[in-house]
Write a protein that binds this DNA or RNA. Sequence first.
DNA 1: CTGAAAGCGCTTACAG
DNA 2: CTGAAAGCGCTTACAG
Lengths: 338, 338
Amino acid sequence: VNSATIRDVARAASVSVATVSRTLNGIDSVAEKTRDRVLRAAGELDYVPNSGARALSTRRTDTIGVLLPDLHGEFFSELIRGIDLAARANGLHLLLSSSHGDPAEAAAALRAMRSRVDSIILMLPQGGEDLLFAAGIGAGTGAVPMVFLGQAAAKGGHCSLAIDNYAGASAITEHLLASGRRRVAFVAGPADNADAGERLRGYRAAMRRAGLDERVVDGDFSEQAGRDAARHILAGQMRPDALFCANDMMAIGALDALKDAGVAVPGDIALAGFDDIPIARYVSPPLTTAAVPIAEIGRQALECCAATIAGRKTDQQRTFTPQLVVRASSPTNSNHAD
Amino acid sequence: VNSATIRDVARAASVSVATVSRTLNGIDSVAEKTRDRVLRAAGELDYVPNSGARALSTRRTDTIGVLLPDLHGEFFSELIRGIDLAARANGLHLLLSSSHGDPAEAAAALRAMRSRVDSIILMLPQGGEDLLFAAGIGAGTGAVPMVFLGQAAAKGGHCSLAIDNYAGASAITEHLLASGRRRVAFVAGPADNADAGERLRGYRAAMRRAGLDERVVDGDFSEQAGRDAARHILAGQMRPDALFCANDMMAIGALDALKDAGVAVPGDIALAGFDDIPIARYVSPPLTTAAVPIAEIGRQALECCAATIAGRKTDQQRTFTPQLVVRASSPTNSNHAD
DNA sequence: CTGAAAGCGCTTACAG
DNA sequence: CTGAAAGCGCTTACAG
């Protein structure tokens, strides 16, 4: 790769490299005429500063690292889109990586990112946050500022953007109950996932308040888990009249299994999910869910990074409350005859 | 950011920085004892080489740039996932960017990426390829090797992975005709999109071979465009008995609009899409489509980058033929009474 | 307003 | 087998 260097530009414009640097960085007073000459030379040579060299002297990479547990599906797609949008607006690059749910892998990825980014947006698969800090990552002054996604509490002065899963799950459950359902079952997410835990807690609290027994089936956020859960429930004796899945993907899987089994939704069983991923409105019947502003969270995460880099603020915790979206899978005025 | 530098490690191990470098890079003969000492020191200091500095002397960044027209939806999500998978396997980082369909923006992004990556995977929105080369990007010896996605022809020794859209669209159209449909309408993709153009060509050829009139409605790959197209067609006089959308998202939009209008699918109108994005099988009825191995293409694109960097090969053109997937939206034995 | 020079943290011939 | 030194391409006090 033989691109032009700052020296080539300096030579072409008959100035020192210092002057080229100053001109291109828009700082310092550079004579109008000199400036023009430099700019023209840079343009003709199609000069683009070498980012590695620049990073070496400025200690800024203008890059944000993004570490996600997975890159699969609509949720992460939306999140990345939101992050990308804000990154472009801030002139920042994005270094993307996924940890595939393995905390050790996440730690390794974080370490590899260290010198390549100014800040990191990360979403940890499990309660891996502690693990991370135990590994010495994120602590100390030498640490890269981080923005945690989906964790209720920010540690050591880092930003954190969380979803009020408890409130969202309570709202969904209450809606199902208000529509006349009584035997509301819940399909849980991964046991070690904080978001999933809160959703479970929200469901439980709402059932308790209504004086009803809870019914929890295991799941792992995958569409297949939803399918399995639905089958499991149909095989049991006390068939529920409503099924609340901890995320939309599982609800979609469950919907499929229910249809296969000839169970009417919402006629026999009302169905609800969580997230409001784009597909949610296209399945049939459209899915009731708790809408999480995914792209917006991504955008704010990036803005948080940008602010931290710019030295404007350091930490900040924000919680997004999901909005109940009632669709045909669980109509409000349930004509459900029990 | 005060991470340990190679000098710190050298000091701690009582050797020169050259020896540390050699040890960590696994090259050259380093005495067993020295090696152990260096490794221990590096471990204790949690040393990670500064990537910018390393890139400066090796001219390798171990990073692959990915430039996509958009980051929205399942298609790109799958693609990125495939790329990421292979990147991890090859110890490569991913720098992600989207051009939002603007060729000028794409050129700027490419330029900004230049010094940050060893190779670039890019998918151009329009016939922007020519535009790119006209802008001097990708030409010459100083150029970063690129892998083109979705373009039939590789330029200047770059790799290219393409989809045989023509074959896929022909197959879909022939399937619809074979199931007894005669008035097959086509909802086109963006006029300036090469993939979309080929799909249109495939549809046209199949209709011509069958001696039938074509019927093309404009679209742009968005779900909304599919909805609009369906409405447009229902408003017309000659109502088609099959609708073939240039991609799944439009088919899903069309499906929604058809349902709203009380039109039975496939009873009144058979429906087909293209891509086989994950949602395709979850809509009701499940969508007939031409399956494109999206993640696999992403994986191979990355492998192509890796191979080029390693100096193994330079160019290569591969074409993937989509596979016809018949689902309930257009059953083979159509009980369609015309 | 501009230039010479040091320094950012690495790698790699070149000696020894 | 190991070290001293040059060099990668930038930025930034420090002089002038």
